[in-house]
Write a protein that binds this DNA or RNA. Structure first.
Length: 1059
RNA sequence: GGGCGUAUAGCUCAGACGGUUAGAGCGCAUCCCUGAUAAGGAUGAGGUCCGUGGUUCAAGUCCACGUACGCCCA
């Protein structure tokens, strides 16, 4: 029985109430792709200023998770925002392809373990598998990236493994080399002597085991300084759990600010930290009274424990180090620079040599006395026994602690000095600090906090890795030790004397290229290392273009960048490598603004892991709730820079509270714009000027402009949470106040100036909020835009201009008045609910007590009477003082300003005063006199909070000094008006349940058994007819079919039939 | 062990400048309203604002110390 649909005559495509958000998103994706919207957004802004975004390449290792969505939403939202503001935002995708995680994954796939296996398998084939593994995972990332609506150019993505990329990295390394900042030095690495390989931090974490080691306290006789004397009866007492490192003891470290004491047992003297005296020596020992600050002990020499290895340079003295603690041991720390990173740093600062008698397989050099050929850990026993025999051992115990083992073979690891390549970042530390001070961090505390701290403690960048799948270090060395650094394949070709343009610049192929040493002509071979992948990614601003060998101009036009974003764990990763590489190469940082995100946790507050079974798979989440819901969560739930928990419930709430509320408002608009006297864009021109519109409309325009200004400011500050909150509140206000209060004006179609104003106002608000939300939820806004857009507007919201909020339309006073109006309505609802009189029953009068009530315009007062269904609204003061109770409360904020310490006394006086008298005084003169501690004090109106309540016969609700009182007395007329409302509701229900369209006209028949109801229907027949779209209302029963509805309570029966 | 961050209702989170009644949503209970809505409204239950100390007339808010958790680094 429904009419033929006539979509072509309607101004707006329908936005059905029932909506499948993920389904819409797929349609939008297809439309974007088909109409090349992303490409056109770039084309359209080509003449505009550049706003440069750099994509931090995800490691294409493993499958993408929801945490990847987080950063990618932020990488998308600001470029979209800036694009709408007219900037040209180039977005080149990128993939981090090299690195240990890839190697480990491939090792597992192939069932290989360790470098011997890999070399037996063949490096060429191994690296080919790595490349293939990376490409496989890139596909999964690409699919997720597209599905979530992240606009980034993946067709021209850079890949860190591509030859052009590698060449750019080589170029940068050559630049750094030519500045003298690329050097070879020892590096302490966790090392497995069985596998013959170093382990990464990540691998290290896999292999901690609890073991028991010897814990020995050893005497180091002092040979110079105030305690030195013939016979050497004074010794430094040194503690260690790795006796095997004593063989290469080089120095002893003390803390400069710790106090050391000398203790004696009558025969010898030992030096320990004061705090550890009793713990280490205890009974039988007493202090000699000699005390030294660590700083005073510097350069005291001592007799080293073993004379097994030779030192070519002076060593074996006391040095100072801040890392020494007095938590364990003796406060004097044995130093063996080949076997500890701290030791290495400290000893190097004193110019001490690195002596390492342990060979790569973990055994002592064969020729050594006592320990020659022994595995390092096995040597402990013999060494301790020897110390004991020579009287140097003070005490030995067992020590249980957690020690790293190889995760592959469980061999205890060795911290081991290996030759390594470093970048001397410490040489540019001041420049880095300077660059950091110019960088905008979001949140701001990272700059001086976590990141600043990292920079201030900068150490040289250990660049090389003894691995296979990485950018080969472009260093060639000849037998004479001359070093050549190569900056490109063509340069390498020139040196090698053949064309290497097509060479894959990876191992093993580059390893096979030998060149003639430019200095001596001898054969130079490449050093075996590859480089840290962080250098790869830090080089992306130029390497993504292959610059400077290629696209030099493009690179220059896109450098430095305005914006990068990653999670907080990148402070020492990509955020650092990006700043460090470009500062090293160009002298300044590559980015100006950096957003630093917190991590996404599972609903249970833990990290997502397969093991815990709490993983949310991003594609599944997006198919269930929609990408927009997931995006909104990332952008606007909680603070993006704190850890956040994600779950289905949170996403469902976003769909209901934000997305559907917004969508339904648009749906409401199109429903009525398409109904009856249709409204279309041409009627926008007929709408009254904003200043001439009803106050409700002016209020909405004020709000939407305030929100537009606020969202713009928030987005400029990279603050999506604030933007999201502003938008959520606005959408709620729009739907649940503006539309709710304006419904009648829409029902009529655009037939009156008031209705025309309502349509225009709602349209403008929807248009603006759609634009404002477009960068955050690009799918739903695109869908709504498609339905609402003006004929001359761009076909995509993402091709439209960002709205400029109009300050001149923001009316703060009106906002306050509307807020008061809404507070009074709330109080009225509360009073209604308390009284038990339903809202459909009109009441004659409501009394209002509120400070600014007398200034409330009539149009807003009528919002209150309509909403509360009352006839009249009067100020409480009109009732007469005798019928009203007053209470007064001190306003502490106001009082505190004036009275400070006396505030509590004044407050007490206010509460003790006669409330009515005080109110009368304040109302008459603006001031009231009180006495505080015998002195007169004047109180102003704003310093007290007055609440007034009528005494009897009213339903009252108050809050914060504002009161609403409903007159509950009903007259017969009011009763009949209430019955008429009941009747209308009954008929509306019947219309709805019988499946009528909202615009269908009906004829209505009625018969009543209740005489009061009959009178009410007769009396209000015209009103009822208008409300239920009845062309006629007839008492009696119709002939033929009709929908029938009756109410026993009202004693009435209706029949309705579509006309 | 160090640095940084976080801690507010059962859950997710707001709470510029310190102001005495600490809010919202979800969930729960009862009721109301409804011809856009998967909605809306009212009331209720639910809080030692992580702990301790301090500053202040006044502290969820500022300071110090501690606890728990997270990230990074040893």
């Amino acid at each position: 029985m429904s009419e033929e649909p006539k979509p072509d005559t309607r101004p707006f495509p329908a936005l059905p109430v029932q909506v499948d958000l993920p389904g819409i998103e797929h349609e939008i994706l297809a439309r974007w792709s088909e109409h090349k919207i992303f490409e056109r957004s770039l084309e359209q802004t080509r003449g505009g200023p550049n706003w440069v975004f750099f994509e931090g390449p995800p490691t294409a290792n493993g499958q993408p998770g929801v945490h990847h969505v987080e950063a990618r939403v932020f990488k998308d939202v600001f470029p979209r925002f800036k694009t709408m503001k007219g900037y040209h935002v180039n977005r080149k995708a990128g993939w981090d392809c090299h690195g240990l995680p890839v190697e480990v994954a491939v090792e597992k796939e192939l069932g290989l373990s360790g470098r011997e296996d890999i070399e037996a398998f063949g490096v060429a084939e191994f690296n080919a598998r790595c490349r293939e593994s990376v490409l496989r995972n890139v596909d999964a990332f690409t699919a997720m990236t597209e599905r979530m609506g992240y606009w980034v150019n993946m067709d021209e993505a850079y890949r860190t493994m591509d030859p052009e990329y590698v060449e750019s990295v080589w170029w940068a390394l050559k630049e750094i080399w030519s500045k003298g900042l690329l050097v070879r030095d020892y590096r302490i690495s966790p090392y497995c002597p069985r596998c013959g390989t170093t382990l990464s931090d990540h691998e290290l974490a896999l292999g901690y085991e609890t073991v028991t080691d010897p814990s020995v306290y050893v005497r180091f006789p002092v040979t110079s300084g105030p305690l030195a004397e013939p016979g050497g009866s004074a010794s430094l007492l040194v503690w260690t759990t790795t006796p095997w490192t004593l063989v290469s003891n080089t120095a002893v470290a003390v803390h400069p600010d710790v106090t050391y004491v000398v203790a004696t047992d009558g025969t010898e003297r030992l030096v320990v930290a004061e705090e550890l005296f009793s713990a280490v020596l205890g009974e039988g020992w007493e202090l000699t009274g000699e005390r030294f600050e660590g700083a005073e002990m510097e350069h005291w020499t001592y007799q080293r424990p073993f004379e097994l290895v030779s030192f070519d340079e002076p060593a074996h003295f006391v040095l100072l180090a801040d890392y020494v603690t007095v938590g364990d041991g003796t406060g004097l720390v044995h130093q063996a620079p080949a076997f500890g990173a701290d030791d290495m740093a400290t000893c190097r600062a004193y110019g001490l040599p690195v002596v390492n008698p342990v060979t790569a397989d973990g055994t002592f050099e064969a020729g050594l006395d006592l320990v020659g050929g022994l595995f390092f850990k096995t040597a402990d026993r013999d060494l301790v026994a020897d110390l004991e025999a020579r009287g140097l051992l003070y005490r030995r115990t067992e020590y249980e602690h957690s020690y790293p083992h190889c995760w592959r073979c469980h061999t205890p690891l060795l911290y081991y000095a290996l030759p390594s390549w470093y970048i001397r970042t410490t040489a540019v530390k001041d420049q880095l600090l300077e660059q950091n001070s110019r960088t905008n961090w979001y949140p701001g505390n990272v700059r001086e906090g976590r990141y600043g701290e990292w920079l201030r403690n900068n150490i040289d960048w250990a660049l090389s890795r003894s691995r296979y799948w990485g950018t080969p270090l472009p260093v060639w060395e000849c037998d004479e030790g001359h070093t050549t650094v190569v900056g490109s394949l063509s340069e390498l070709g020139e040196l090698a004397g053949r064309d290497l343009g097509a060479l894959d610049p990876h191992r093993p192929y580059v390893d096979d290229v030998t060149v003639a040493c430019p200095e001596c002509g001898g054969t130079a071979r490449r050093v075996p290392e590859v480089i840290d992948v962080w250098f790869d990614s830090g080089a992306m601003p130029f390497a993504q273009w292959g610059a400077p060998h290629r696209n030099e101009e493009t690179f220059r036009a896109n450098f430095p960048g305005q914006y990068i974003c990653e999670a907080i764990d990148q402070t020492r990763g990509w955020f650092y490598s990006m700043m460090a590489v470009s500062t090293l190469v160009f002298g300044y940082s590559s980015y100006e603004n950096v957003v630093c995100l917190g991590h996404i946790l599972a609903e249970d507050g833990r990290k997502m892991s397969k093991h815990l079974g709490n993983v949310l798979e991003p594609m599944a989440v997006m198919e269930r709730h929609g990408a927009d819901a997931l995006r909104w969560f990332m952008l606007a739930t909680g603070s993006p820079w704190t850890p956040r928990r994600i779950g289905h419930q949170a996403l469902e709430e976003i769909v209901r509270k934000v997305l559907l509320t917004y969508y339904n408002t648009a749906s409401f608009f199109t429903l009525y714009a398409n109904t009856g006297e249709a409204w279309d864009h041409q009627k926008l021109a007929d709408a009254p000027a904003p200043a001439d519109r009803p106050l409700l409309d002016r209020w909405l325009l004020s709000e939407v402009n305030r929100v537009a200004l606020g969202v713009d400011e928030a987005m400029e500050n990279f603050d999506t949470a604030t933007a999201g909150r502003l938008l959520t509140t606005f959408v709620d206000d729009l739907s649940n106040w503006y539309v709710r209060r304006s419904r009648r004006r829409f029902w009529a179609g655009a037939t009156t100036p008031e209705s025309a104003s309502a349509f225009a106002t709602l349209f403008e608000a929807l248009e603006t909020v759609t634009l404002l939300m477009a960068p955050m939820v690009p799918f739903l806004t695109e869908h709504v835009w498609g339905a609402l857009r003006r004929p001359d507007a761009p076909e995509s919201v993402h091709l439209a201009q960002w709205p400029k909020g109009r300050q001149d339309l923001v009316d703060a006073r009106l906002s306050e008045q509307m807020a008061l109006t809404r507070r009074l309505v709330e109080l009225g609802r509360s009073a209604r609910a308390d009284s038990g009189v339903r809202t459909r029953q009109p009441l004659s009068r409501v009394l209002v007590g509120a400070a600014d009530f007398d200034t409330l315009p009539e149009q807003l007062r009528s919002q209150i009477t309509d909403e509360l269904n009352v006839v009249r609204l009067d100020p409480l003061s009109s009732v007469g003082g005798d019928l009203v109770d007053y209470t007064v409360k001190p306003n502490f904020r106001a009082l505190g300003r004036r009275f400070a310490k006396r505030t509590p006394l004044v407050a007490e006086a206010i509460q003790a005063s006669d409330a009515k008298g005080l109110v009368d005084q304040v109302r008459a003169t603006g001031w009231a006199q009180l006495e505080v501690e015998g002195e007169p004090v004047e109180i102003s109106a704003e310093e007290v909070l007055v609440t007034e309540q009528p005494r009897e016969g009213w339903a009252v609700a108050s809050d914060s000094g504002e009161t609403i009182a409903l007159d509950l007395r009903l007259t017969p007329e009011l009763r009949r008006a209430g019955l008429a409302r009941e009747v209308i509701r009954l008929v509306q229900d019947a219309r709805k349940s019988s499946g009528l369209d909202i615009a269908d006209r009906i004829h209505l028949w009625w018969s009543a058994t209740d005489p009061t109801t009959a009178q009410a229907v007769t009396e209000h027949a015209e009103n009822i007819a208008t409300e239920v779209l009845a062309l006629g209302v007839t008492e009696g029963t119709p002939e033929g079919d009709a929908h029938t509805v009756s109410s026993e309570e009202l004693g009435v029966t209706f029949h309705l039939r579509k006309v």
